[in-house]
Each structure stands twice: as structure tokens, then as C-alpha cells.
Amino acid sequence: MCQAAIEAGCRFFAGYPITPQNEVPEYMSSHLPEAGGIFIQAESELAAINMIFGASAAGVRCMTSSSSPGVSLKQEGISYIAAAELPCVIANMQRGGPGLGNIRASQGDYFQAVKGGGHGDYRIIVLAPSTLPEIYELTMAAFDYADHYRNPVLILGDGILGQMAEPIELKPYKPVVELPEKDYILDGCKGREPRIVKTLLLRPAEALVEFNEYLKVKYARIESELKLCEQYLTEDAELVVAAYGITARIAIDAIDAAREKGLKVGLIRPITLWPFPNEAFKEVVGRAKKFLVVEMSNGQFVDDVKLAIDCSRPVEFLGTGGGWYPTPEKIFEKIEAVYK
């Protein structure tokens, strides 16, 4: 993730230590300055995200990373950054919650990531990689989406992804979308009119209504343009498993085992959680008799799956909360039990 960020031109990182993502600031603290960038260990996640607010307005590609309790603190800043339409990349290597929880892997922050988290009507792009090579690729792309849409992008990982080792094939960075010129940067008004970055819209009374209307259109555009999703053996699947991130990877083992037994099971793995790849679900809903949602929480992502298919098929659920992951055996058992 760090290597990808640096290759994609990230030149500012601010963060605060929290397990299980300490490897990120530790790596950045030495490698980012070598690449001519700035690393700051902030006094809190609040300070870190507000440094990102400043860094983005100053015009550089910037990133912060944390894990669940720290990401809660960042929500204030994320709302401001979304409101100011500034690009940035935020990583959340989720751990068990609520509260201080534990330091094991979890997907309990789905609602916070996808439905808001901070105050106000805003959206952030949420990317959910399931392997290290995918983290590498999506981190690079995250900076591009952030710049392209002038919007925060969240990489939603978990404690397993955050601590795992896997070989990666390095690829030279190439933008995946067009990168507009940054005409909002604050760097002193020499030769131009002064610029203001602000989020307060008091007057006239309709100003904020109009701005929200504008954001609505922008978010609709993102929804129409950016949807990433992987399908696995869904062509003939009668049972479609839905899972994202590391859970999808575990589910694939269970699906392979089920196929060996002749069960027609497939997988839809959303890669963008917002925008949610509804179309992929609508596409298979004609063939699939049932869905099974697997996630490392006691039921968050499952809501979006039900919405995507308008509750037109039964949606079974296998969830584990509190920082625990479902084993391939558990998922296989559940597949057998619900496959009828």
C-alpha cells in the first residue's frame, strides 16, 4: 500500500499509531522523505485528518491511515474534506469493535464507511481490496479517483490484510482516469485572485441547499461511472454468495469445495462498496434462487445486498462479529445448509 502510494505520487502522510496498521506509518516515516515527501506523526487522528485537509488544499497527493477507533476520530475531518471537495486517500484496516474492541480483523465499520460516519449529506468512494496485489493496484487508483472526482477515497481493509505477506508484482504507476488540473490550490495569490477553501454556506439562505443539490448530481455521476466488482462462477449459480474484502477470499475456498460436491454456487465480490455494484446483483438475480451474505460483522453489508436485489430472493446470512473471521469450513457448512 505504501509503495503504491509513493509511486502514485503521494507526498504527504499524517497518521497516529494504532494496531493493526502501524506498519503503514512506520514505512512511510522512512520511505516518504526519501521520495521527497513529508511524514508527520500527528498528536491524534483528529490532527492527522486535519493535516490532510491542509495538505490537500496545498495541492499535494496525501494520505492518512488508521484502524477503527482512529477512523471514528477522523470522521469530523472527512466531512469537511468532502464538503470542501478536496481529494485525499484514507485507509481503514478495521479491527474488532465497538469501543476499544480488540485488535483482530473485522468488517464492523461497513456502515461508518459506506453510509456516512461524519455529519451531513456526503459520500465517499469506498474501495475494498481482498488481496495484497489488489491493495497495491487500488491504492494507486484511489489517488486517481480522488483527484478525478475531487472527493475522499477510503480503502477499507481489515486486520488480516493489514498484517499479511504476499508477493506483489510491481507495476509502474499509470493514471486510471483523467486527472483534472487543480485550480483550487492555495499557494499564495501571486498573479491571480485570492482563493478561499471553505465549507460554511450561510448566505443566501438557499446557498447550502444549492450546494447539496450540486453534490447530489456529482455523487450520481460517480455512481454511474465507477462500479467495480468481481464475479466468480455466477453464470450458472443457483446460490450466490456475496462477500467483500478478505471474507470473499475465504469464501472462494468454500465455493470451490461446494462445486466439487456438484452444488452450483458462485460469488459476487463488490470492490467498490460505494458506489455499490447493484447491477451485478440484478444481473444474476434471474438465475439465482438464493443469496448468502458472509461478512465479519453481525449484519451491515447484508442490507445493501437485499437492497440491490429489492429483496426479490431469500438472503441468508453468516456473520461473525467481535474480530473473528468465518473459516472456509463454516462457510461450506452454511452453503450446504441453505442450498436447497
Binding site: 507526498r11 491542509g54 499557494d187 495569490c189 485570492p194 478561499i196
Partner: peptide, 29 residues
């Protein structure tokens, strides 16, 4: 609203966070 009165670049910050924002801006510029 001080940006309505000052004739230079201004960034409006969240309550209490200007030092963090200024830290990043000054380090970058």
C-alpha cells in the same frame, strides 16, 4: 468569515484545527 475581509488565500478550518491545517500547509509551502 475573515476571508470576506482579507485579500489573500484563506482556508476555513474545523473548530480548533487550524494549527494542524497550518502545519501541513507550511510544510508543503
Amino acid at each position: 468569515l475573515l476571508y470576506d475581509y482579507f485579500n489573500f488565500d484563506v482556508i476555513e478550518c474545523a473548530h480548533g484545527r487550524p494549527p494542524a491545517v497550518a502545519t501541513a500547509m507550511k510544510r508543503i509551502h
